[in-house]
Design a protein around this nucleic acid. Structure first.
Lengths: 145, 145
DNA sequence: GGTTGACTTCGAGCACGCTCTAAATCCTAG
DNA sequence: CTAGGATTTAGAGCGTGCTCGAAGTCAACC
């Protein structure tokens, strides 16, 4: 068997999907799913028998995708971005717009999360207070349930 | 027809599901779904004909649920919480533990979001720089795509 | 009594992002 | 050459949280 350690450079003949999965941090299923979904614009090579052979450049691009995914970007939007990148030079403004829109969304989510956190903290505070003062079974206002 | 304005107090005979939906901010579908899911522990009254009649106390509890939902708590966890509340006095520690666990999750999500935001900002920064310096089609390192 | 519109239940459908299965094929070690 | 593990495909399945549809019932007004 072709021995390839996780940190060895990718051999000239490329990597099998299992090793590619290991190196990108997703499952082989997900790797194939991303390809079907049109995210993998690097056109992964195949052996004559049809097996995928991943090159470093493939892994690099897939990592871009997984990083975007990690930021909560939807598959659909990553797809859009990928299409732009595949479209080549000249659409940087569009790509930037897409990223900026995503950034805005993240910032909004952040605000909302902060509000949620405050709300939960308030609720927790009420509970703590209640329990400390032994009011646990006297206060039944909905606010505090 | 029974005229009931959105801010009128709930009449003694209760509200129909449509008005309850309006007042709780969810759809009638969602209202029934929450009930099926076991979130609505206030046991909404029914007319002899089987129609739901919402009292203020029902609305108050449902609003607790929607607020928890707004904080991103899962239906399953709201269910657990509801069961505890329905269980009555004496399990305040458990409720608090549940809320605290959720709070921890929110805080983690917050951190992750902050990291995502930073990552996206870095990427956006790279794009801005590239485009400003006219490097748009020279830099193709995967980091910057 | 009749028309209308609100409401009922149950179950299906949907969007998302995987995750898994089955049956076939490939490829490498021995 | 063969055994057996890795990989292939298309498509099904899953968990979440709704959302909708169908077919039937109820109730308010005329």
């Amino acid at each position: 068997m072709l021995e390839v350690n996780p940190h060895d450079p990718v051999p000239p003949e490329g990597l099998g999907i299992a090793e590619a999965a290991r190196r990108t941090g997703v499952s082989v299923h997900t790797l194939r799913y991303y390809e079907r979904a049109g995210l993998v614009i690097t056109d992964v090579d195949r052996t004559t028998g049809g097996r995928r052979r991943y090159r470093q450049s493939d892994l690099d691009w897939i990592k871009v995708c997984t990083r975007l995914r990690d930021t909560g970007m939807s598959i659909r939007d990553i797809r859009r971005y990928a299409d732009l990148v595949a479209g080549g030079r000249g659409n940087e403004h569009e790509r930037l717009a897409l990223l900026a829109a995503h950034r805005t969304e993240l910032a909004e989510r952040m605000d909302e999360l902060a509000r949620s956190l405050a709300m939960i903290d308030r609720k927790i505070g009420i509970y703590r207070e209640r329990m400390a003062t032994g009011d646990a079974d006297r206060l039944w206002a909905p606010e505090t349930r």
